[in-house]
Design a protein around this nucleic acid. Structure first.
Lengths: 221, 221
DNA sequence: AATATTTGTTAGATTAATCTAACTTATATA
DNA sequence: TATATAAGTTAGATTAATCTAACAAATATT
């Protein structure tokens, strides 16, 4: 049985491995920063996780989840994303409110609870941020993720998921009426600063920054 | 902010105060036994809770929740019973499975979560065991609780709630098809051992022990 | 009232998760 | 390559929650 804290470290390592695209390794400091603890603390936990064969790692080396560690982390991620979906769909939470509560709910220990929750929600493939929800068997709905910033003038797409899940960005999206599935059309790309002039759904076209365009994953049509 | 453990102590004190009918005081050993810890541990926690003005208590004296302590404990009980209701109504848990999971869920910190959950469930007054669910303002649906064992031959009643919530008893009730609301008719009371011969719903009459009759609260008709 | 039993407290130790400060190893740069 | 900087570890301390063993107070029994 994993402690609350151990689970958080595993989940952090999994998330960081997604972020570090090609190579899924992570450093001690990176992990500590992500979790908001000191590197010394991370080192201690690493020893414990290594002891339990959840990470493979040697002194001064990079950190990698073992198969077992990855499996455990996937279960936690699955729970997190299912709970986020529940909060949005069933309890009318807005997508910038769900994370904090799901961080707590993901640690509830009950196989049956997770599976029944998934059933109640109708076996959703994606969470409210558009991120894929791991299945009970560990499988992950695969998706090609294209950043809005990679598109050209004239391209059309739908919003697939958010790269940046900060409350600030999510609230901005809310204001722009941008949701998962919203249709976007690129009217113009400004080379000078990477900003874009886009039509959002049926609304009036407007300009968005490069930072914005690099924070949104889309599905090209 | 209360720790997970502190919350458990407060809830235990509240529950014990219900049990001790007339006087809501509790002893150190009683509390320790209820929580499955040693008396020494309970003493330590008591000091902490006293420091926080959640219990009033002096060395070698009895323990009593302060107004603040009672309020906090009621919130936890409210969460516990709402989650139990959720598990039964929405996720098809049986009533002997809900307790363990609700013990974890009751510690999730989010005012909005609780209130929205209550709304989703349609503002239920009672949980799956027939126990009253405290309202957001701290009010508790008042009920007169009569034990089945207090009834006489010829009396009719409906099952209001269970006094004993052990999985063993709940599973036995399941087997007998006794649920909250089930109609019972007392055919005969055996003075010798306090057992009763009763009709359960539309079924064939059968005999139940005194222990059984003392574990079930009913509403006399 | 004297003593035995029950009840509750204290002192000292343990474990998990964290910290700071000092140290070591690895990497980058001049 | 030598050295400066970044990254990572170790040692020792702290806090919360728990324990055991020894002690103290309150209550019950003769």
């Amino acid at each position: 049985m994993l402690s609350y804290t151990e689970e958080n470290y595993l989940k952090a390592l999994l998330k960081l491995s997604f972020q570090n695209e090609d190579k899924p390794e992570t450093g001690t400091n990176e992990m500590a920063a992500y979790l908001g603890v000191k590197p010394a603390t991370a080192t201690d936990m690493l020893k414990k996780l290594k002891e339990k064969e959840l990470v493979s790692y040697k002194k001064y080396g990079k950190i990698l989840l073992t198969e077992m560690g990855k499996k455990s982390a996937m279960v936690i991620l699955r729970k997190h994303r299912l709970w986020e979906t529940f909060l949005c769909e069933k309890l009318d939470f807005s997508w910038d409110e769900v994370h904090e509560v799901a961080e707590q709910l993901e640690h509830i220990q009950s196989q049956k609870l997770v599976d029944k929750l998934e059933e109640l929600l109708g076996f959703p493939q994606f969470d409210p941020h558009g991120d894929p929800i791991p299945k009970a068997n560990g499988e992950m709905p695969e998706i090609t993720r294209t950043l809005l910033s990679e598109l050209q003038e004239g391209d059309t797409c739908t919003v697939a998921s958010v790269k940046d899940t900060s409350a600030m960005f999510l609230q901005y999206l809310e204001k722009l009426k941008v949701r998962i599935g919203t249709r976007l059309k690129i009217k113009e790309v400004i080379d000078f600063d990477g900003s874009m002039y886009i039509a959002i759904g049926e609304g009036e076209p407007r300009s968005v920054s490069m930072k914005f365009a690099e924070s949104l994953f889309v599905q090209k049509l």
